[in-house]
Deep mutational scan, measured.
Amino acid sequence: MAAGGDHGSPDSYRSPLASRYASPEMCFVFSDRYKFRTWRQLWLWLAEAEQTLGLPITDEQIQEMKSNLENIDFKMAAEEEKRLRHDVMAHVHTFGHCCPKAAGIIHLGATSCYVGDNTDLIILRNALDLLLPKLARVISRLADFAKERASLPTLGFTHFQPAQLTTVGKRCCLWIQDLCMDLQNLKRVRDDLRFRGVKGTTGTQASFLQLFEGDDHKVEQLDKMVTEKAGFKRAFIITGQTYTRKVDIEVLSVLASLGASVHKICTDIRLLANLKEMEEPFEKQQIGSSAMPYKRNPMRSERCCSLARHLMTLVMDPLQTASVQWFERTLDDSANRRICLAEAFLTADTILNTLQNISEGLVVYPKVIERRIRQELPFMATENIIMAMVKAGGSRQDCHEKIRVLSQQAASVVKQEGGDNDLIERIQVDAYFSPIHSQLDHLLDPSSFTGRASQQVQRFLEEEVYPLLKPYESVMKVKAELCL
Score class of each variant (00 low, 15 high):
R396K: 01
N353H: 08
G231P: 04
T227G: 03
F95D: 07
V478W: 15
W39N: 14
R303T: 00
K470Y: 08
D216V: 04
M26F: 00
F74R: 05
G240I: 14
G200Q: 14
P471G: 11
I123Y: 00
G288E: 07
F379I: 12
E370S: 08
Q320V: 12
M65S: 09
A348P: 07
Y21L: 01
D59E: 04
E60I: 08
G116F: 05
Y13V: 13
Q286E: 07
S434F: 12
H97G: 02
P471T: 11
I287T: 04
R194E: 01
A77N: 00
R329K: 08
D59Q: 07
E370Y: 02
I139Y: 10
L314S: 06
S257E: 11
W326R: 06
G96Q: 07
P281V: 03
T239D: 01
C113L: 11
W175R: 06
M65D: 00
N384K: 10
E283V: 04
S290C: 10
A381R: 05
C399E: 13
R270C: 02
F236D: 05
A335R: 09
M387V: 13
R194M: 05
E462I: 15
I369L: 04
A127I: 06
P10N: 09
L53H: 05
G8E: 06
P318Q: 04
A136S: 10
V324K: 02
A411Q: 05
L121W: 06
Y294G: 12
T52E: 10
G451D: 09
P56I: 11
G419E: 04
F157G: 01
V92T: 00
T204V: 09
T354A: 12
K264Q: 14
T202I: 09
R194Y: 05
I339G: 08
L423M: 14
L482R: 11
E401D: 15
D332C: 00
A431Q: 14
F212D: 00
E417S: 11
Y13M: 06
N297W: 07
E25G: 13
P162C: 03
K218I: 09
V315E: 07
E360L: 07
C483L: 08
A335K: 09
N336Y: 01
R14G: 00
K284G: 12
L275V: 11
G231T: 04
A2K: 05
D216E: 02
P162V: 01
E228C: 01
Q41D: 15
P133R: 12
R303P: 09
